[in-house]
């Protein structure tokens, strides 16, 4: 596995840039398209959550319940998707003996539906 060069600290800035590049390369190589799909969804959710949070802090936090519902929807969906990712990731097979990827997806769907139900109840 190509790791970042363990050079002296004088080139630390370039090494950190290199580290990030290597990280990105390693990530690209090792993750399956399925997991990449999951990751794009995760990034989208994170952006949406950040936007709502910033709006809440900068403009107004009234109505608070709508903020909590919207933000909670992003956060909840994010963690559910992240859970799905860990469950489906083949490297974690040993941890999830009882949960096959199909079952993982079914649980993810169920959890998301329950989450959205509460979100819409809380929104208005």
């Amino acid at each position: 596995m190509a790791g970042p060069k363990t050079t002296a600290s004088s080139v630390s800035s370039s090494s950190s840039a290199n580290a990030l590049q290597t990280l990105w390369k390693a990530y690209n190589d090792t993750t399956s398209p399925r997991l990449k799909l999951v990751d794009t969804f995760l990034v989208f959710l994170m952006l949406s959550g950040v936007v709502q949070f910033v709006y809440c802090i900068l403009v107004t936090n009234f109505p608070f319940n709508a903020f909590l519902a919207g933000f909670g929807s992003c956060v909840g969906q994010f963690v559910l998707t992240a859970s799905l990712r860990t469950q489906v990731n083949p490297t974690n097979r040993s941890e999830f003996k009882d949960v096959s990827p199909e079952r993982a997806f079914a649980e993810f769907a169920l959890g998301s539906i329950v989450l959205h139900f509460f979100v819409y109840n809380f929104l208005g």
Binding site: S48, Y55, G70, F71, S73, Y120, L123
Partner: peptide, 10 residues
């Protein structure tokens, strides 16, 4: 924004 956030998540 919250409504759009929640709906976009769904």
């Amino acid at each position: 924004p919250y409504y759009t956030g929640a709906i976009s998540t769904s």
